[in-house]
Design a protein around this nucleic acid. Sequence first.
DNA 1: ATCGGTATTGACAATCATTCTCAATAAGCC
DNA 2: GGCTTATTGAGAATGATTGTCAATACCGAT
Lengths: 129, 129
Amino acid sequence: MKRNTWQREAVRTALNERGDFISAQKLHTELKAEGSTIGLATVYRALTDLVTADEADALQSPEGENLYRACSSDGHHHHLICRQCGHTEEIEAEAVESWAAKVAAEHGFTQPRHVVDVFGLCRECTLSP
Amino acid sequence: MKRNTWQREAVRTALNERGDFISAQKLHTELKAEGSTIGLATVYRALTDLVTADEADALQSPEGENLYRACSSDGHHHHLICRQCGHTEEIEAEAVESWAAKVAAEHGFTQPRHVVDVFGLCRECTLSP
DNA sequence: ATCGGTATTGACAATCATTCTCAATAAGCC
DNA sequence: GGCTTATTGAGAATGATTGTCAATACCGAT
């Protein structure tokens, strides 16, 4: 059975208010700064729960941290990330989904996961570097 | 001044012979298994050196490990990577290429690069874990 | 409203990849 | 061979994440 706790709710709303990608560590620090007594482990648990519930998505920063963000659209999707300013946009990748699954199957691979992210320079950063 | 040591050479040739993506940890274990006395820290140092010298590629697995591979100078392609044994198969992704370029352009992004890799369990690892 | 089983929490320990430290070693130049 | 100093290796340190487990609190049933 799944229970609703104020801790999970706190993580969910914190993510929604923020909009940007944020690390679990930083989120925990901010919550504590606001007076919350939530534990670090709980933040991690809440975040992974949100990801599996498709309410948030996760990606790895080049530094090896996991970053989380509230998902605006539901379902599985990918990102277009500016490598200058970090701005991200969600992109649909229906074609890529089925392609990944097909290719994996053709080579005898099971349990496919994929990493599909496009890095570039966004409009602003293209104009003023 | 830059010096040539058998350790760096060992890492370079191990990467070249292998062709697959491999983690620093696993590479170190294999070298030790072959009787080498190389240290783990040295393997890390050699790998990052190779990457900065453009002799190797690095990417992050979904598990947060850094994987390294000798740079095949020929063309651009993608990978199907076993997250158990590290076996890699190259895959054609013509469809993905054009898709990435198109999506980037639609959102005003320039200079698109993309990360498209599929992780799974290969045939052998699916059968005997 | 309260009771009880159990999902969830939080403090802390444990883990895992990676980096740092520093004395000892060895590469390259004389 | 001898000197200088980049490089090494063993272990400690770091930093993110996950596991442990007793205490807590959610929620359906009473």
